[in-house]
């Protein structure tokens, strides 16, 4: 089986809310793909659709070319961590993994193996209800690894982890990708993925905003970014908006313009008689690039069309 996830044109509506609006991307093996976007962007819904838990109104999601529900012993194809709290509190960690293992034709030896892999061998006989969030995340990872799957999908795996846990998780995810697995990790914070992901799928409002490598994203975002300082902000935005540029307001008198070189900006402003005090190009951090993609800029771009 190919270790890939293909998401193609997913559309899903929850009542009045359009949760997925043509979500499409592909996750390739051998790298960590960050699945990033603000809360409510459709990350978890996309993952649930991929895993056959939610049904999409349109489009399809395939794992190694097949829908999840057609997989035999699915946990040997995909490992997923959706909600670390999904535990019967009175069941021990080992027994939690044991029923899961037997459902896939695996046995107790494999359970002990994954407990060791996530460093929980000593906690196996303890009731899962007493675990800290960090322990639950580890147990969730253990469950995802149970079937030794070529594809892994983790929804906010570092959420609530202490710094030590975050470092452990990063190393762990990198190691799993290094073994040739396709690893999809979602987060609503780019900073969490900064040192982990090779590739990014940035989503907002149910669709993909950017599907790019981390390096390309920074380069692209930086190249296009120009800081414009002007007292006549609204006029400047109005005239620049007609050119199709993307804008973000960072201060009352400061606009960050992307998608338009600085000389064109100066020309447009001059041609329309808009005063300005400073135009400067600059390089952005990944976090900023992400904010530009998912923050107010999304709204402005939408409004400019």
């Amino acid at each position: 089986m190919q270790a890939t996830i293909e998401v193609n044109g997913l559309r899903k509506r929850f009542g009045q809310t359009l949760a997925l609006d043509g979500m499409s991307f592909t996750v390739l093996p051998g790298q960590v793909t960050g699945f990033v976007g603000p809360n409510g962007a459709g990350k978890s819904t996309t993952m649930r659709v991929i895993l056959g838990l939610d049904a999409a109104d349109e489009g399809h999601a395939l794992i190694g070319g097949r829908p999840y529900t057609s997989l035999r012993n699915p946990l040997t194809h995909v490992g997923a961590l959706l909600d670390a709290g999904a535990l019967q509190p009175s069941r021990t960690a080992r027994n939690h993994l044991l029923w899961l293992a037997h459902s896939q034709g695996l046995d107790g030896r494999r359970v002990d193996g994954v407990l060791e892999q996530v460093g929980m061998q000593s906690a196996g006989r303890r009731k899962a209800g007493g675990f800290s969030l960090g322990m639950r995340q580890r147990l969730g990872i253990a469950a995802a690894l149970l079937g030794d799957p070529p594809v892994l999908m983790l929804d906010e795996p570092v959420n609530g982890l202490d710094p030590e846990g975050i470092v452990w998780m990063r190393g762990f995810l990198r190691a799993l990708a290094g073994e040739g697995r396709a690893v999809l990790v979602s987060s609503h914070l780019m900073s969490e993925l900064e040192d982990t992901a090779d590739h990014l799928v940035v989503v907002g409002k149910g669709r993909v905003i950017a599907d790019t490598s981390v390096a390309d994203l920074i380069t692209t975002a930086s190249r296009g970014q120009v800081t414009l300082r002007t007292a006549a902000r609204s006029e400047a935005m109005s005239v620049l908006g007609h050119t199709g540029a993307t804008m973000a307001v960072t201060d009352p008198d400061t606009i960050v313009v992307s998608g338009l070189p600085s000389e064109r900006i100066v020309a447009v402003l001059n041609a329309n008689g808009v005063p300005f005090s400073e135009v400067a190009t600059h390089r952005v951090t990944l976090e900023q690039a992400y904010m530009d993609l998912t923050g107010d800029a999304v709204e402005y771009r939408g409004a400019a069309r």
Binding site: T69, P74, L82, A86, S103
Partner: peptide, 8 residues
């Protein structure tokens, strides 16, 4: 959800 992942 975990149950349905194991037995879709």
């Amino acid at each position: 959800r975990l149950t349905l992942l194991a037995g879709p």
